[in-house]
Amino acid sequence: MSCVDEATVTRAARRLAEATATRRPCRPLRDLIDADDVHGAYRIQKQFNALRVATGTAVVGRKIGATSEAVQRQLGVDQPDFGVLFSDMAFGHRAEIPMARLLQPRAEAEIAFLLAADLCDGPLDDAQCRRAVGAAVAALEIVDSRIADWDISFADTVADNASSGVFVLGEQHRTLDELEPAEVAMRMEIDGEVVSTGTGAACLGDPLHALSWLARTARDFGDPLRAGQVILSGALGPMRPVHAGAVVDVHIHGLGHVSASFS
């Protein structure tokens, strides 16, 4: 259990909120919270996200972070985490995303699951999660950090809503009768150059394993997954920095293509 008091949680959440509002990254939270205090970090995340909800922004789903060994190595963490997806984070295929709303963006390719059923009761195992998925979609997640220079511990990224930025969903929907998530191959390009490759198996062995982990964890936190939510299941390969003027293309076998440009 965390020993961080509520006043410290509030200070940390406000530090992240100020970085968001001013578009200036802040120092890490390690002066306020131990680097491995996961419980305390999720308390900060909850308060940080509540500030966003208070402005009228709707929750549309969840994201799972640090599911790929390659991304874990890049971030210096050794376990997955989760964050919340908001309506103003969502973009469609071929969207132009303004760099002004991002701080230190990095792109990663994922499978998104669109839930057709709640995941709140039962074993929440892979089989149940498979039945709950209405469709799978190619996704491009732009992760972003409010922490300066991505100098993060696990607690930093958890508190910072799992370093969430924005996400882009493709237009091809496939049921899991038509697609085996663990078997897909992914290629990500920036300005026509291949910068990341991977497979579904890179995501905790199977993106459905990641979904099952999230379903159980979300229930444990008292906020289970619900029908209609978008779930970003985690990176299929290394993430890469994005610059102004870049065009990012993701190709996932069986799910087609999703693209975005950055202005």
Rank of each mutant, 00 (worst) to 15 (best):
V4A: 05
A12Y: 07
A12S: 05
E18F: 06
A19P: 00
A21Q: 11
R23N: 13
R27H: 11
L29R: 07
D31N: 13
D31F: 09
H39A: 12
Q45I: 01
L51Y: 13
R52K: 15
L75G: 02
D78M: 03
L85I: 09
E96G: 01
A107L: 07
A109I: 05
L114Y: 15
A117I: 03
L119Y: 02
C120S: 13
P123T: 15
D125P: 00
D125Y: 09
Q128S: 04
A132W: 03
A135K: 04
A136M: 09
V137L: 14
E141T: 04
D144W: 08
D144F: 05
R146I: 01
I147P: 03
A148R: 14
D151T: 07
I152A: 05
D156R: 01
V158P: 00
A159S: 13
G165Y: 11
F167R: 02
V168C: 06
V168I: 14
Q172K: 15
H173D: 11
R174A: 09
L176K: 07
L176H: 11
P181R: 01
E183P: 06
V184Y: 01
V184D: 11
A185I: 14
R187V: 13
E193D: 11
G200L: 11
G205T: 12
A210I: 10
S212Q: 10
S212K: 00
F221Q: 11
D223N: 12
D223G: 07
P224V: 12
R226T: 14
V230L: 09
I231L: 10
L236Y: 03
L236F: 10
M239L: 14
P241C: 12
P241S: 08
